[in-house]
Design a protein around this nucleic acid. Structure first.
Length: 425
RNA sequence: GGAGAGGUGGCUGAGUGGUCGAAAGCGAACGACUCGAAAUCGUUUAAUAGGCAACUAUUCGUGGGUUCGAAUCCCACCCUCUCCGCCA
């Protein structure tokens, strides 16, 4: 959420900054509403002040004369009643305005960082660096072909259980998933992250707090009988964990790592990535999350990204780092570095982690603050996948495939998986 | 799911219509005493909002309502605890 005061006082610069996302934003309407609301706020405060004085007077009179029915008292009470009516009229206006303002502001995305490359869409994203040598060869199998021949996962039967885009991991496939989760959690906790295992069901306040609602209701699965949704990413519960808190600056930065299943409707992606592990309604992810001092989030962003990168390096998976351009930034993010892993079968890099600095956007939505010079200040939040498990498995299968049909397990993962090669059972 | 109890300031805990933003205790800060510390004594100590110099308003789980006036009364909801039932 953007700062109301900024919108009220400097709407043109707000519009200008937002427009770098490649869309036109008209703030003037919200500005009008906030100005009107401010007038009403002071009006109400004045009326309340007078009405309070009057009530006090009435109380004193009653105490003094030990009676509460006299002509004079009746007059005072009648006057108080008038105050009450007027105040409640203003309060109704205030409520309506508040609701409108809130609705409109919650639909505005975060300010893109000045450092983010300017551009319309993903074609303007900037490749910052690559790591490792991409495997290029003929006759490479896709990970779903490998998965089938080694019997690692299954999607046809899974439609019986639920529907398409949901898979069942089998045998070594399930074991590899488990190994990856443990591997990543171990590395991150050794690096100073505190592990959380949050609920996968989250309420709508939590989704609003991190920016998934109100705009993206269509992207998540909703439970019909309760105000609960299947969390699309651990970023949601991790943001909500400290909602409405003022965090002592000496505790910052707070660094969490959380494994969680993630659920996404993938509306509008029919026909894309229909096979394999790339795009599923349910997938596992290890997520990194920072609450940090607002003056330090730039460094934190680099750190969280390199923490995510460290997993790819340890697994020896070639990847590249992409600086997301202003037009391609997610709703809550001001700057995002994507890590894309090399998938040899499709001869391209695919997103496996997204590391974002949300500045105070989520903190304001969720009211999470810290003290700076004794003043309450919204802190900054950052999130990054460290990593998406299913896509990591896909990358391991494709990059580790051997001529004899087996798959080499990255050395660092062997202690977790239990053997050096993945073969037919 | 049934029956009951309860949600008050950093914490414990009073307060059931009127100078209550809230007693008391603990904790914390400062001062005195002390070579220093402990103990003791004294003073101070909620948050938020407003172009915020000590002014005004709001806040006693949340949202409504009654009243001139609500922590206190009424309604709805949320949460916690105990017992029973059910279940991993």
């Amino acid at each position: 959420m953007l700062d109301q005061k900024l919108i009220r006082e400097n709407p043109t610069s707000v519009e200008e900054i937002l427009s770098s996302r490649g869309k036109v934003y008209n703030i003037s309407h919200i500005q009008e509403l906030t100005l009107k609301k401010k007038e009403i706020d002071t009006e109400i405060s004045n009326l309340q002040s007078e009405s309070k004085k009057l009530s006090k007077l009435i109380g004193q009179q009653i105490a003094k004369f030990q009676k509460n029915n006299s002509q004079e008292l009746d007059n005072l009470k009648r006057k108080g009643n008038e105050y009450r009516i007027r105040i409640s009229e203003f309060e109704e206006k205030q409520r309506n305005l508040d609701k409108q303002i809130h609705n409109e502001i919650s639909n505005l995305p975060n300010f893109p960082s000045e450092d983010a490359p300017v551009g319309q869409d993903e074609s303007n994203n900037v490749q910052v660096k690559t790591w490792g040598d991409p495997l290029i060869a003929e006759n490479l199998k896709s990970h779903w072909e490998i998965g089938e021949s080694l019997n690692l996962f299954e999607s046809i039967k899974s439609t019986k259980i639920s529907k398409s885009r949901l898979i069942t991991l089998i045998g070594n496939g399930a074991k590899l998933e488990r190994a990856l989760i443990n591997f990543m959690l171990d590395i991150h906790t050794k690096n100073g992250y505190l592990e959380l295992m949050p609920p996968a069901l989250v309420n709508s306040l939590s989704l609003k707090g991190s920016g998934q609602l109100p705009k993206f209701a269509n992207e998540s699965f909703k439970c019909s009988n309760d105000d609960l949704w299947l969390s699309p990413t651990a970023e949601v519960p991790l943001t909500a964990f400290h909602r409405n808190e003022i965090i002592d600056p000496k505790h910052l930065p707070i660094k969490y790592v959380a494994y969680s299943p993630c659920f996404r409707r993938e509306a509008g992606s029919y026909g894309r990535d229909t096979r394999g592990l790339i795009r599923l309604h349910q997938f596992n992810k290890v997520e990194l999350y920072w609450y940090c001092d607002p003056t330090k989030s730039l460094e934190a962003h680099k750190k969280i990204t390199s923490d995510a990168e460290s997993i790819l390096k340890k697994l020896n998976l070639p990847y590249r780092l992409i600086d997301i351009c202003t037009g391609d930034l997610g709703f809550s993010s001001s700057r995002t570095f994507d890590l894309e892993v090399w998938l040899p079968s499709s001869k391209c890099y695919r997103e496996i982690s997204s590391c974002s600095n949300c500045l105070d956007f989520q903190a304001r939505r969720s009211s999470i603050r810290t003290k700076i010079d004794k003043k309450n200040t919204y802190l900054h939040t950052l999130n990054g996948s460290g990593l998406a498990i299913g896509r990591t498995m896909a990358a391991i299968l494709e990059n580790g495939q051997q001529p004899d049909g087996s798959v080499k397990i990255p050395d660092a993962l062997v202690p977790y998986f239990g053997s050096k090669f993945l073969k037919t059972a």
